[in-house]
Amino acid sequence: MPEPDERRAAPPKATATGPGRVLIAVYGIFALSATARAGVQIAGRFSEAPVAYLLSGFAGLVYILATLGLAGSGPAARRLAWVAVGIEMVGVLVVGTITAFVPGEFGPDDTVWSVYGRGYGFIPLILPMIGLWWLRRTRAR
């Protein structure tokens, strides 16, 4: 166990240390904004673009789970983070590709993942890459 921590009883929150905390902050902001926006859309005008709004809601949920997984400690949190960030990576690639080639496929409104997150400075595309890299870097060796 080459962990850089003397206190064996309290293992470090490997993903929630150092630059990982900046990553978690960005995930938290996306979790908050994506979920709030989708919540308003689903509650207020669901029938206008149900697929897009459900997709936005799903993305928001994935961001929440990724934030919790990365901020938490222990193998369960790490597993959650792997799954959530993995789904996020696949989601932004699939939705991004579909919307890039078939504009308006999911309705008139953009989702957070449309055209690889164009509406959000492509951060939705870069974020899961950094997330996966960080999970790999901080894993037990």
Partner: peptide, 18 residues
């Protein structure tokens, strides 16, 4: 709050992200 919970160099970047 999140930056101060673990006060090291990355706190500034957290505030910047916010």
């Amino acid at each position: 709050q999140w930056a101060n919970a673990d006060p090291n160099r990355w706190g500034g970047a957290i505030v910047a992200a916010g």
